[in-house]
Amino acid sequence: MSTTFTLTGRKVVGGCFEGEALVTRDRISGWGGIDPRTGTVIETRHELKGISFAGKVLVFPGAKGSSGWSSQFHIARLAGVAPGAMLFNEMTAKMGLGAVVVHAPAMTDFTEDPLSRIQTGDWVRVDADAGTVEVTPRQRQTDPSQHPTGSQRTRAPS
């Protein structure tokens, strides 16, 4: 039984959007990490490799990599393939600027970690001005092959 729940956080860019969640625990590179003409992640070892975030509510830890981050997501917006909304945990300069130039609702500083509460395929309604995210979980599949996974990656020894 799916029960809708609400997360609260801070507005980064105002506005409302609702759509399907695309969740990754990997930080996303802009330049060299996405194809801004298709909205597809291209980074070699990324768990979303080959998957497009166009029109999705992208839920991710934050930005990494080159400072071309904002310009790549800026191009993605002009190409019509930017995320519909962005929810993330870690604010950095490239993340903040990237969110601003995408012009889509964006939020951070959540009271609960969206990465542990939202799953890919959930229906999400973002009201950044009100600081709320309403999540309706998708009917769960038991088949593990339903999980969208990219290439396998090896963790570093630490």
Binding site: S66, S67, S70, S71, A93, K94, V101
Partner: peptide, 22 residues
């Protein structure tokens, strides 16, 4: 990013990894 990390760390200058727009 490679210049940002160099001037912050090696030179002690102060910058975030800015972008094309900023």
């Amino acid at each position: 990013s490679s210049a940002v990390i160099y001037i912050n760390s090696v030179l002690g200058a102060r910058t975030n990894a800015e972008g094309r727009e900023s």
